[in-house]
Amino acid sequence: MPDPAMTPLITLDNVGLCYRPQRTIFSRTKKEIWALRGLNLQIYEGEKLGIIGRNGCGKSTLMRVLAGIYGIDEGKMLFSRPNVHVELLSLGVGFEGNLTGEENAILNGMLMGKSRGHMLERIDKIREFSGLGDFFDYPVYTYSSGMNLRLGFSVAMETDPDVLLIDEVLGVGDEVFAAKSEAAIKEKFSSNRTVVLISHDAETIKRMCGRAIWLEKGQILAEGDPGEVAEKYHTGAHQYKI
């Protein structure tokens, strides 16, 4: 449990976010879908926070709010200091098929908030870690989906955000790379970096996180020790419908 005297790095105060799907004059879908509503959450510097919840509970929306991709419609989100770099771990999103692994690695790193220089300095490490060999110089369209993940993961490991948001990806790729990538993620967890991990698997949260919350319908139902939260989630999750 975090020390109550500690100031949180990120504070969400009564946060609400709603989607307003487009309608046509002939069909009427729901006007507003509140993915988060009345959410209060503190994220402390260096903590490993697990977020557990069923599909559609608002986990991914919350991640995008934290990453600054979605603006909130209600409440406040405060950072304890300016320029906190929050990054969502995403694998292979935004790759250009006709460009080589190396070119994509640099471009992808730039999308994640790093300069070209930062990526160029680390390109050899990325090549090494990805284990793609000669394929690193081939266009990405020649890659298998597993190789795509390898490249994406290797890039993400070199972007060093202040807060790393992970959505269900721990070990990726084949057996060899899965072990390697899980080890790399664990290293991120053991460093003093702030990590937020989303999962619908309570075991992962228990194993990796120091604190956990159970999210349901955009609100927190339980908060605290991962073991206890996971227990509540196991016994209580069935009574809720999407």
Partner: peptide
Amino acid sequence: AKYGVLTQFNL
């Protein structure tokens, strides 16, 4: 066209 990228990165 870049919706998928824009929902992953803060750009």
